[in-house]
């Protein structure tokens, strides 16, 4: 891709992101408030259920839960929204030459802004109130970068697959509902018996969430660097797979739309 093409594609992504945001909350009473209301409600319910009813014993449980829950909501909501996006936009994609990545990235960017908004309005104040370790904050840009790039790569792959196999969105939705219980979001990884812990280490979503815990909730430099290395490995692998799958399927893609 030439620099001029990158400039044009970026311009298209920004315009579509803005329009997506306008369209999403138009005619809703709460409008942009839904961005924070959704994670706050999810957080309040889960916090109550897991801490008060299921008696999960974790110090600073609010901060612990938010560190996992906010990235989880971003990843799963984005996968859910982006998987059918190319399939549903077939008329538009076949109307004129437009890079399909514009549709995928604009939706991801839209969700990422919502995530950042919730992150700074909900999580950071909680972190300050609970007296979190400040050193971890410097790693946040690196953690957020791997989160957004990996999510984009996986979503790109899923959206392409959906064009060929109409079951993909159902499989994704089903797998995500199972993964919520299998990923240490509302419980610490220590709760998983040691002989099953390898399953957690194979979970790519947890690889993206774990660094948030080590930077914000329980700062530990060596574990954080290890977690970051793992998340970057997942990022590079998924990006390569998505790129080559797209290259292989590009011609068939337009035919299957």
């Amino acid at each position: 891709m030439h620099s001029i093409e990158i400039k044009h594609t970026t311009r298209q992504i920004i315009a579509l992101t803005k329009s997506n945001m306008m369209s999403r909350y138009r005619k809703t009473i709460a409008g942009f408030l839904w961005v924070v209301l959704n994670p706050i409600i999810m957080y309040a319910v889960q916090s109550f259920v897991f801490r008060k009813l299921l008696k999960i014993e974790v110090p600073n449980y609010s901060l612990f839960l938010l560190c996992g829950l906010l990235p989880w909501i971003f990843i799963t909501m984005t996968m859910d929204m982006v998987t059918p996006i190319l399939d549903l936009s077939s008329d538009l994609l076949k109307s004129f030459k437009m890079n399909p990545v514009v549709l995928v990235l604009s939706q991801i960017l839209d969700n990422f802004f919502n995530f950042l908004f919730a992150f700074f309005i909900v999580l950071i104040p909680t972190w300050i109130i609970m007296g979190g370790e400040w050193k971890g904050v410097f790693f946040l840009p690196l953690i957020l970068f791997s989160l957004v790039v990996t999510t984009a790569a996986v979503c790109w792959l899923l959206a392409t697959l959906q064009v060929f196999y109409k079951d993909v969105k159902f499989v994704v939705s089903f797998l995500l509902s199972i993964l919520f219980f299998l990923t240490p979001i509302f419980y610490p990884v220590d709760y998983v018996p040691e002989n099953y812990r390898f399953l957690v280490s194979l979970n790519p979503i947890y690889a993206l969430i774990e660094p948030f815990r080590f930077s914000i909730y329980d700062f530990n430099l060596s574990l954080l660097l290890k977690g970051l290395a793992k998340s970057y490995f997942v990022m590079i692998t998924t990006t390569i797979i998505s790129y080559f799958y797209w290259r292989k399927k590009k011609n068939e893609f337009y035919l299957s739309l």
């Binding site: 044009h8 315009a15 579509l16 997506n20 005619k27 004129f96 514009v102």
Partner: peptide, 28 residues
């Protein structure tokens, strides 16, 4: 290249907003 002439991108937005968006997508 144009292959279709009834292009709406975000139906919830107005015609003007769709025209603005279409112009960015078509003439970036």
């Amino acid at each position: 290249a144009i292959f279709n002439t009834a292009i709406g991108i975000l139906p919830q937005l107005t015609g003007r907003e769709n025209a603005q968006l279409l112009s960015v997508l078509m003439f970036p």
